[in-house]
Structure formats: structure tokens, C-alpha cells
């Protein structure tokens, strides 16, 4: 018997489809990615697009309607609404991304540990997550934001404390189910150290799902940032932020409704973009 033989006539690598073509066949990812890219592009290049400064007041031109000069009109202090809107995107998106990094890493890591090793760690994390989930989320946010003072810092601290729970829950469940699969058992009996199994084998398998959850969670975080801004315990003026913009426009809702509506729509737009990206990524990984 010769030793070089191929078991089946199927050519090796026959199922491999290029990443680009898979992305191309996932419309939600494409549309969502494009929407998000437009927003990021605007936020990055706004100093070159707009001749105005976000806090530049012009009291003689207040509450103007949209025009060629002011694309979305001006607010009660004569500041250009479009410029402010995009500068606010800078603030809010930056906080959104930065505030997710630590909770995401901790959540995924703790979730893997709890799912893989189980026992007391599993019990502890289940207990913590159940308690915190039973607690109204915004109540925690408001308490911590008050305690640590308004502004960016409060948001970061709040999310470091409660943000990881979502990821820990999802990843814990996934890890526990992977643990029951034969390849994990096989790796254990073959003598691979637990740390290695977790980092090299478990992590890549739970990451796709965790990233999909991350996209959804970022939407929630963005809404929270905006809500805090609206309540006056988030970003503090004069830093542009969608929440404070909505709050500021409230007094003019009958005469200049767009002052509040436009930043609100910006939140909706970002939310749709992120949720399309999340859906698209989930589709993409399922197809594989």
C-alpha cells in the first residue's frame, strides 16, 4: 500500500471562498459598514469640511433655518448645527469605543474562565450577573455618574463596573458548551495546558459571537451616553454632545424642531449602522 493517498476525490480547499466575496455577499455588513464609515469619515474630516468652530457663537444669526451657508441651520446661540452635530459625533463615538474596551476584555476573559473551569467562579459570576441584571441599569449608571462626578470619567467608571456583565454571560455560556465538545476534551487529554486551550482554542471560537454582542452593546452604551448628557450628568457643555444638544433644543421644539430632532436622528443612524454591522458579521460567520 502506498502511503501517499488522498481519501476522497474532493479537491482540497474546494470549500474555500475568499473573504472578499463573502463580505460582498453579506449586504447588511456592507450597508452598515458604509453607513458607519461615512459617519467616521465626517467626524475625522469635519475641520476641513466646515468653516465654523463647534462653539463659535454668532448671536446675530441665531435659530436660522437650514440654508446653503448653514446646512442644518443654527441654534439659539447662532452656532452652526451641522458642525456641532459632527463634532458631537467625535465626542460620543470616542467615548463609546473607549468605554467598551475594558469591559469587553474583562467580560470575555472572565466568561471564558467561568465557562471553562466552572465551579465557584461560575457560581460567583452567575450570582453577580443575576444581581446586576435585576437592578435597573440606568439607576446604576446615574448613581455612579453622580458619585464620580459628571463628565467622561463617570461614564468610563460606570461601564467598567457594569459593562462586562453582558459579555461574561454570553461567553460563559458559549465556553461551557464548547467545553463539552470533543476537541476540548481531546486537547486536555493530549496534555495541553488550560491557559493554552483557553487562549489559543477557546478564544477564537467565542470571539465572533462576542463581537456581535459588542456591536449591540455599543448601541446601548451610546444611548446611555446621550441620555446622561440629556440629563446633565454626562458630557458637560461646551463640549458638543448629542445628549446636551437634544436638551438645549427642547425649549425651541415648536419653532425649530430640528434642533432636537437632528441629534436624535444621529443616534438612530449610528444605532442602525452598528446593528447592521453586527447582523452582517453574525451572518458572515454563520456562512463559514
Amino acid at each position: 500500500m502506498n502511503s501517499i493517498q488522498i481519501d476522497s476525490p474532493r479537491p482540497m480547499g474546494g470549500r474555500k471562498i475568499s473573504v472578499a466575496s463573502r463580505v460582498w455577499n453579506t449586504p447588511s455588513l456592507l450597508v452598515g459598514g458604509l453607513m458607519f464609515a461615512v459617519l467616521i469619515g465626517l467626524a475625522v474630516f469635519i475641520p476641513f469640511i466646515s468653516p465654523y468652530q463647534p462653539s463659535e457663537q454668532n448671536l446675530s444669526a441665531f435659530l436660522q433655518h437650514p440654508s446653503a451657508e448653514h446646512w442644518l441651520g443654527t441654534d439659539q446661540l447662532g452656532r452652526d448645527l451641522f458642525t456641532r452635530l459632527i463634532y458631537a459625533a467625535r465626542t460620543d463615538l470616542k467615548i463609546m469605543v473607549l468605554a467598551e474596551i475594558i469591559p469587553f476584555c474583562t467580560g470575555v476573559f472572565l466568561g471564558m474562565l467561568a465557562g471553562y473551569y466552572g465551579k465557584w467562579l461560575n457560581t460567583l459570576i452567575s450570582l453577580l450577573t443575576d444581581t446586576l441584571i435585576a437592578f435597573p441599569f440606568y439607576l446604576i449608571v446615574i448613581i455612579v455618574a453622580f458619585a464620580s462626578g459628571a463628565g467622561e470619567r463617570g461614564i468610563y467608571i460606570t461601564f467598567m463596573l457594569v459593562g462586562w456583565i453582558v459579555f461574561a454571560r454570553v461567553v460563559k455560556g458559549l465556553s461551557a458548551s464548547f467545553r463539552e465538545q470533543e476537541w476540548v476534551a481531546s486537547a486536555q487529554t493530549l496534555g495541553l495546558p488550560g491557559v493554552r486551550i483557553i487562549l489559543r482554542h477557546l478564544l477564537p471560537n467565542v470571539l465572533p459571537q462576542a463581537i456581535v454582542v459588542l456591536m449591540t452593546d455599543m448601541i446601548g452604551l451610546l444611548v446611555a451616553i446621550v441620555t446622561l448628557g440629556y440629563l446633565g450628568i454626562g458630557i458637560t457643555p461646551p463640549t458638543p454632545d448629542w445628549g446636551t444638544m437634544i436638551a438645549d433644543g427642547r425649549s425651541f421644539i415648536t419653532t425649530a424642531w430640528w434642533l432636537s430632532a437632528v441629534p436624535g436622528l444621529a443616534v438612530v443612524y449610528t444605532g442602525i449602522a452598528l446593528s447592521l454591522v453586527g447582523d452582517g458579521l453574525a451572518d458572515l460567520w454563520r456562512k463559514k
Binding site: Q181, E182, W183, S186, A187, R200, H201, P204, N205
Partner: peptide, 13 residues
């Protein structure tokens, strides 16, 4: 050596 070879290999490695 396991019964289901695909199940005994990490699908992403």
C-alpha cells in the same frame, strides 16, 4: 482517537 474526527479538532485552528 475519537469517533468523530471533525469534532475532535478545533475548527478554527
Amino acid at each position: 482517537v475519537f469517533q468523530d474526527p471533525r469534532g475532535a479538532l478545533d475548527p478554527l485552528c
